[in-house]
Design a protein around this nucleic acid. Sequence first.
DNA 1: AGTGAAAGGCGCCGACA
DNA 2: TGTCGGCGCCTTTCACT
Lengths: 153, 153
Amino acid sequence: MAARIDELDRKILSELQADASQSLDEIARKVGSSKTPVWNRIRKLREAGVIGKQTVLLEPEALGFDACFFVLIRTSEHEAGWQERFLATLRARPEVMEAHRLAGDIDYILKVRVENARAYDRFYQALIAEVKIHNVTALLSMEELKFTTGLPL
Amino acid sequence: MAARIDELDRKILSELQADASQSLDEIARKVGSSKTPVWNRIRKLREAGVIGKQTVLLEPEALGFDACFFVLIRTSEHEAGWQERFLATLRARPEVMEAHRLAGDIDYILKVRVENARAYDRFYQALIAEVKIHNVTALLSMEELKFTTGLPL
DNA sequence: AGTGAAAGGCGCCGACA
DNA sequence: TGTCGGCGCCTTTCACT
């Protein structure tokens, strides 16, 4: 699955991660190339699925999302049907920012962004009403020390 | 800190989150307004710090980042000096995608993206060499079930 | 606060080396 | 594969409502 990427591609991706609003000329200058080759490479990287969607990062606190929880989930159910229902629930719930299936004794971890603790409880109640869950631990974030979407190229 | 945002702002932010490469005309049409007002609102939201940086989301697996760990950290040190060193280490390490200070008996959680388990171990060794840590639990992600940067507006 | 128009810049695509 | 040049759209601004 890992695409063939050379040094120039890496530099271009790095620039795009840092600031996707830069002009082609600007990127070309920084990576030591020029418009057309840079543009062709970006197109190829997009087609190859290396570059996903272009977005803006919003400030959660400025929008009233003051609470962030990491939710550790243990389940006793491991049939396909259960996992499908669980997955569908996660996908349907916009407050679930991230969900991973884990190795080890904890089965899943979620990252959930909500307005406040009450909103988290609503989410929690809705979740356990939809799927049977053996054990849930919620870790409340007091402070986001670091956040980046940029991979270390 | 929460900015005053009306329904139109919310729609605009939603569109930008979904696809920041859209033209102003397109966004204006979708939210039922026109170019200039949309542009003015975007500028204000940027100045207010609601809209942060514009970026592209890269596909980790296409770039060889096949391993993702959530790291639960307990420490016995709670002085300011220790936390400063810890924070500086996290900031300096590009494989740390996310770091939160928590409430409860676990003190910190990190999200770490690396090439493979060996790269994680290098990170782990470097971390405990730099700061004294009481207890570390690493949760290995087997599968990313969901990932979004889009807040639920 | 929204409309319309005008200008400069930039993405995108050609031909050429 | 990289450079140059042009067409047309899109951002950005301003004057008016």
